[in-house]
Nucleic acid binder design. Structure first.
Lengths: 132, 132
DNA sequence: CACCAATTTAGAACCATTATAAAGTAGAGT
DNA sequence: ACTCTACTTTATAATGGTTCTAAATTGGTG
């Protein structure tokens, strides 16, 4: 299994649950956005096998910490994650609450002119809200 | 009172509670960021007068809808608001969970090249995460 | 002043997320 | 393989921010 190495290398034991979650998250051509509940549904659909919600939360947070997932900064009652971990941005369709990827080249270079002493920039994220 | 007109003009009745909230939010030189609980505290401190949490939520949302406040898109368990409604962006200090204003001129013009049919851009918000 | 719609309020309800503690499991060492 | 220990999973409870509810209050018009 291709994910066993990946998990071991990050110091995460390759458990059955984590491998199943990897398959749902990373066995696709396209990257995608999801909430925990959507992921829970996907897992049930794909594997006919319920994984405890607590495990899904734990795993998603572990993957995020390891850099396999990104949280999307957005105001919503639910947290959105992204399997696309490349440098990119988002449209947010306010009417439908839907996210759309914006490639870095769709936004153009962003040059932050101000510096904060002792801090360095970890990420620059652009959220473009859309209305009708 | 200078806020009575402002409220009336927006179709909001100038109630005692709304006027007190206006004073806490807008009677300052500097703009600031806040959560609902922080605002609740500020109100208690400034006016020795508790306003029901439900009213604070209602009022903040009403003010946001009228454009007197902005929500800051950020991943947190609490919603952050900003009394600075000009076009601007934010640093987010991950270590201390603190927001710092970034003027538009600190970021430079952002030109979104991609269009979504039938949608128009309502806002463009940049979040720059800082680490040590 | 009287009335009606808007507003406030306390408290309950909601719901995403986190904590808990017991049962199960992976993997190193024997 | 077996054992042991630390890590992981799990169901469930707890937490906490936010929204809902329904009754009381209030602003403003006539």
């Amino acid at each position: 299994m291709k994910y066993i190495e990946k998990l071991r290398n990050s110091g995460l034991r390759p458990t059955k649950q984590r491998l199943q979650i990897c398959e749902v998250l990373f066995d696709t051509q396209k990257t995608f956005h999801f909430t925990i509940n959507e992921l829970d549904q996907k897992i049930k659909n794909k594997t006919n096998n319920k994984i405890s919600l607590a495990t899904i939360y734990n795993t998603v947070h572990a993957f995020e910490k390891k850099g396999y997932l990104k949280q999307i900064p957005i105001n919503s009652n639910q947290t959105y994650f992204d399997t696309n971990i490349t440098d990119h941005h988002h449209f947010y369709d306010l009417k439908y609450g839907k996210l759309i990827d914006l490639e870095n080249s769709d936004v153009g270079p962003i040059n932050i002119k101000r510096k904060i002493d002792g801090k360095k920039i970890k990420s620059i994220e652009v959220l473009v809200k859309l209305e009708d």
